[in-house]
Structures are given as structure tokens and as C-alpha cells.
Nucleic acid binder design. Structure first.
Lengths: 117, 117
DNA sequence: TAGTTGTTCTACAGAAACTAAAACAAGTTG
DNA sequence: CAACTTGTTTTAGTTTCTGTAGAACAACTA
């Protein structure tokens, strides 16, 4: 599991990290029981603070995606599952349509948020 | 055009306003040339600061959705257009699939952001 | 000319994000 | 058991973001 953060982005670092882990789980690249690298290790590798990494981990725990255990680290939870093929296809279809309509990414996100609300 | 803001939400007020206007344009409820209410009026009605409303307006101007003119107000720009039916349908299809898969809203947003990146 | 409305400026308060360092607690490993 | 690992908690400080407040200004309208 390798991470990347863009410190110039307006998106908080902890959000970027949580997003990457979430996606890895949803896409099936991380399965139930898999272990995430220790927070101190990630913090050191990315040159960010331990708390920033733990913030991301704790978010994912609150979402039920991972479990945190002292001495053991962060484990992908059993509830965590890759998304069904139908959802992935629906996302791909949307991106295709959005691209054809020349819609900016944030516009598409706005539409999806609205439809979900 | 009526607005609503939730001051308890973690989403900034200016983002909430921008989102609502964006959606109104994208869904065709606001067409090119239509006028938005004066910022001072919105600020008074919602009991928020003038600058907060202008922040939303200026965001939308930077996105090319509206034009701002002193003395005249905020006008929906000519480039602004309702999204094609195909896009709306693709969004609806995604929401249907996401619902069947019991995916939380923020998960769906993550998937879409990832696919757009 | 008077009124409207966005623009710009200064100033301040509170919250959020990030960093830093240290001690602690519950595990794991030898 | 002892040593190590790793998340948890606490304290503290800085910076950025968000929102508020008030005022003056500039361009446009009626």
C-alpha cells in the first residue's frame, strides 16, 4: 500500500489518505483482514504528522471500513467489501456521459451529491 | 430562487449556496440571462454575512456559471446550460445501483471522484 | 441625481488542520 | 516475563479557513 499526498491541494491531507484507502478497499485491492502500514511508518514516509495519519485511520474506523488495535495496527474489517460490478459500471457510464458533455469534475460531483440527498 | 443553509453542517455556508445555484442551473431551473437575487438581499434573508454570499457568487463566476455586474447583479451566463438528459439518467442509474448495494453517500462520492480523476 | 449592487479593504473571532513531543495502554513477539 | 510494536491520549503551538462586521468605492440603472 503506497500513499501520495498533495500538500498544495485544498483537500485536507487526512481526507486524501482516507480516500485512497477507501478506494483500495472498494476496488478490491485491499480485502478483509489485510493490514495497513503502521501510522508512524506512513507519517514518516510522507513526512506528515502521526496525528494526521491517525485522523484518517480513525475516520475509516468510524465508517466501519477498518479496525484499529494497539500493537497490531489497522486491519481491513470484515464488513468491508469491494463494490458490486453493477455499481462500478454505473460509475463508468456516468463518467463517459459526463465526459461527452464536457462537464467539469466538480459539476459531476455536485449532481451526484444532489441525487443522493 | 429560494435558498436554505444549515449552519450546523460541516459544509461551509458559501459551498451550500454555490451548490444550490449550480444545481438550479444544471437542472434547468435557472436559464442563461436569469438574475440571481442581490447578495445583500440573500444575506439578509438567510441572516448570514454579505461576504459569505459574495464568496459563493464569486466561486460560480470563476466556474463560468454566472456573471457579476455592479448595479445589475448576478446573471446566469450564456455558457451555462442544463445538463443533457443522458447525464441525468446516468446519475439516476448510479444512485439506484448504489442504493441497492447499500452504499453510504460519501462512498459513492469517493468512487465518482476517483473515476473522474 | 439618487439608488442599486458588486468590489475592495481592514479587522477580528472561532474553528479546522497540521505539527510537535511526550507519556500511556493493550497488544505481539522472543 | 521482558522488550517491542502500535494505537490512544494529552498538551501546546502555528497556520489556514470560515464567518462576521463596517466602511468606502466604482460601475451601472432608473
Amino acid at each position: 500500500m503506497l500513499f501520495r499526498v498533495d500538500t498544495t491541494s485544498s483537500e485536507p491531507i487526512f481526507e486524501q489518505l482516507a480516500h485512497q484507502i477507501r478506494i483500495a478497499i472498494l476496488q478490491g485491492n485491499l480485502a478483509a483482514g489485510d493490514r495497513l502500514p503502521p501510522a508512524r511508518e506512513v507519517a514518516g514516509a510522507l513526512d506528515v504528522n502521526l496525528h494526521t495519519v491517525l485522523h484518517a485511520y480513525q475516520m475509516l474506523r468510524d465508517e466501519g471500513q477498518i479496525e484499529l488495535r494497539r500493537g497490531r495496527g489497522a486491519l481491513v474489517s470484515n464488513q468491508a467489501q469491494a463494490v458490486p460490478r453493477e455499481v462500478t459500471e454505473a460509475v463508468a457510464a456516468l463518467v463517459t456521459q459526463a465526459h461527452q458533455a464536457h462537464l467539469a469534475p466538480h459539476i459531476v460531483v455536485s449532481l451526484v451529491k444532489e441525487a443522493l440527498a
